[in-house]
Design a protein around this nucleic acid. Structure first.
Length: 272
DNA sequence: CGGGGGCTCCGGGGGC
DNA sequence: TGCCCCCGGAGCCCCC
């Protein structure tokens, strides 16, 4: 599933191909994919608009249009963006198509239908509940420490709470905690300054490493890059999907447990 | 207020 | 082979 590194990879690829292009037409194949406004208005307001910039906040992709509107995309579980030439065959799960003035089209396909697209005049207002992005320079060690103070939640669910931090899903929350040597059930308000520093450095290091690898494509191939190729980071995962295997750091066993109804992978030996 | 559990939306695919 | 049900990101409701 696309998390921060996968969306960042797509954002960088879209920036190269989409900025300066004009949207010549919009097809809504599955109306519920469009959250707001209603699908007809959505398509009308995108028609003939020039794309000014591409940004990312957490797992949200932000497409800035000349004239002030923003197209916001969230891929959720199974959303995929593919840039295709005119006339290329559609895939069976196509939900939304943006036709571009260079003859190509951006296809948003999504088997699970959880992905969402919406138009907003201000992304910050529309995404007001989102926490800071871990790679935003505004997230300093001091700010992270202040965010953790007084939080009695366990680290794994807290890192996945998009209102706390925007961008981590199940894979990278597990990977960050392994990198930091912190147990997923550890209570957030019990971390020492030294442990907070490790968490802070791990967040940045793991996410930047995954972006350099072009994101994580698992065997289900749910996430693919804009051109349909897989990302390279799956082979660098340390705990996610490695239950029963030895820890790459201490040789201890990797466990898989359920936390708040979702899986958590960690090393029993070196995560405290 | 904050934490936590449950429900909803979906359908591929794992397990029986 | 066939069928049931689990799974999950995020928003929401409800309870403690």
């Amino acid at each position: 599933m696309p998390e921060l590194p996968e969306v960042e990879t797509l954002a960088r690829e879209l920036r190269e191909t989409l900025v300066g292009r004009t949207i010549t037409g919009v097809d809504v194949h599955w109306p519920r994919t469009v959250e707001s406004p209603d699908p007809e208005t959505f398509a009308q307001r995108l028609q003939d608009r020039r794309i000014r910039e591409i940004r990312r906040r957490g797992k949200w992709l932000l497409v800035g249009l000349e004239g002030g509107d923003w197209l916001l995309l969230h891929l959720r579980m199974s959303g995929r963006l593919t840039l295709r030439e005119r006339g290329a065959p559609e895939d069976p799960y196509l939900r939304l198509t943006l036709h571009l003035d260079d003859g190509r089209r951006l296809d948003f396909s999504d088997p699970r239908k959880f992905g969402r697209a919406l138009l907003a005049d201000s992304p910050d207002k529309a995404l007001g509940n989102l926490g800071p992005d871990p790679l935003d320079p505004a997230l300093t060690f001091q700010r992270l420490a202040a965010m953790l103070a007084g939080r009695r939640a366990r680290l794994k669910p807290l890192l996945m709470d998009q209102r706390f931090l925007a961008g981590l899903g199940n894979i990278y929350a597990d990977e960050v905690l392994w990198e930091a040597g912190l147990h997923p059930l550890r209570r957030a308000d019990t971390l020492s300054p030294e442990e907070i520093e490790r968490l802070y450095q791990a967040l940045i290091a793991v996410l930047e490493r995954a972006i350099r690898g072009g994101g994580t494509t698992l065997s289900d191939r749910r996430y693919l890059r804009l051109d349909g190729n897989p990302g390279d980071f799956a082979s660098h995962l340390t705990v996610y999907g490695r239950a029963g295997q030895p820890c790459l750091r201490c040789g201890g066993e990797i466990f898989r447990i359920s936390v708040n109804g979702r899986s958590a992978h960690f090393c029993n030996g070196c995560q405290k």
